[in-house]
Simulated assay, not measured.
Amino acid sequence: MLQESYPKSAKPIDPIQDDEEEEYDEFDYAYNEPGSLPGTLIIDEDATVPNIFLIDYHADNVTGMQLLHPEDCTPYLESESVSWVDVQGLGSEDVLQRIGQVFKIHPLILEDVVNIPQRPKVEEYDDRLLIITHMVTPKNDGIGFISEQVSFVLGKNYLLTVQEEPEHDTFEVVRERIHRNKGSIRNQRADYLSYCLIDTIIDGFFPVLEDYGERLEDLQDAVLANPSSQSIDAILRIRRELLLLRRAIWPQREAIKLLIRDDSTLLSDSVRVYFSDCYDHVVQVIDMLETYRELASSLMDVYLSSISMRTNEVMQVLTVISVIFMPLTFIAGVYGMNFNPQVSPWNMPELEWSYGYVTCWALMIVTAGTMIIYFWRKGWLGKTRIAKTGRS
């Protein structure tokens, strides 16, 4: 979803593109203006006009089509088959209100569906079950992810799903299973369909987390090899994105737990068993997420340690160089005093040597060379020092 044309909760998560203009809206939940009436719908001016798709199926037959008007799905809702109505886009209040009338949705349910983003949750109204989830998909460039709210309204023989945008849909695999009659989905009711879709949403977190695992490995190598200000930006960016992922998945764990423990007649006992498996997937996602968050936090310590080590290495090299020049400075100072051996009672016989100048140079070169070789063997210079440090 493009940042300039999509609702704020469906924007690509890219927090360091422009530090001056970034407002970090992804942490906000939707809220109504003080004094507004319950059930007030807030439509984003950039939201996509809704497209309505219907899949009606039973064990022997399946029908799929795009509906021009919400009222066109009424005959299917009155049948004994399972009707899945998928609404993609939230850009028309009139269409959304008509959908609410067709499905006899409570105004508060419609408000939670339309006014995004909402916290993932499960609520029961009369003979309908509202499920709010957050779906994430990797960005095309593999850096970051796209977050989108998906709302479920579960009835006895139907399931209404409402997505923010049509371009980042992970439900195609479920549609294919229905059309090709794979598995037992066409022999089950609408509650099983809701499980399949929610399980698809949860499984969508795994490829996103795998991308972060690879990014953290690359970033760790970069921090150890060449720490820089870009490393700090990358670490802060990953930590922030992982925090957004945590906000998306943690409430969904509680929501799925409610589905398992709820005594609603809309969910059969057999489907609750499947939701238990879905809950295990959520726990696995959370474990991976917490591990990556700890790694991202530890990278900051690794960065500071790398900077400190590089500083110490520079200071060690400078110290070694200073130590090498100390005896040379002493020798040059002694023979630079210019005492006249004809006048001084304590003469310096070396000043009268024919090869005194060459001898002095030879002494300084031998002294400096000996110290360099000694320091090298001790591992205080060059690659030998780095190799020994790495082995330790």
Rank of each mutant, 00 (worst) to 15 (best):
F206M: 11
R240T: 13
G183W: 12
F205T: 00
Q230D: 14
F206Y: 15
V174T: 10
R189A: 14
R175V: 05
T200K: 10
S184V: 09
Y212I: 02
Q188D: 01
I185D: 08
E214I: 04
G213M: 04
D221Y: 13
R180Q: 14
L219P: 12
L209R: 07
G204H: 10
E217T: 11
G213D: 13
Q188T: 08
S229W: 00
R177H: 15
F205I: 01
V174I: 15
S194V: 14
L197Y: 05
V208T: 05
D191P: 13
E217M: 04
L219S: 12
R186G: 08
N226S: 14
V223P: 01
S194R: 04
S194P: 05
E210N: 15
L216V: 09
C196S: 11
S231T: 14
L242H: 05
V173C: 08
I198Q: 06
D191A: 02
L193Q: 06
A190F: 14
L216F: 07
E241K: 10
S231G: 09
E214Y: 12
A190T: 12
S231D: 11
P207G: 02
D218W: 05
S231I: 00
A225P: 00
F206V: 09
V208P: 08
Q230F: 07
C196G: 01
L243Q: 13
V208G: 01
L224S: 08
Y212W: 08
V223W: 05
L193G: 05
Y212N: 01
Q230Y: 11
A190I: 07
R240K: 15
L242R: 01
F171W: 08
I238K: 03
I232V: 15
L216G: 00
D203V: 08
I232L: 11
D221M: 07
D211H: 15
R175Y: 06
I185F: 06
S194Q: 08
G213V: 00
E176L: 04
R180K: 13
E217V: 07
H179V: 03
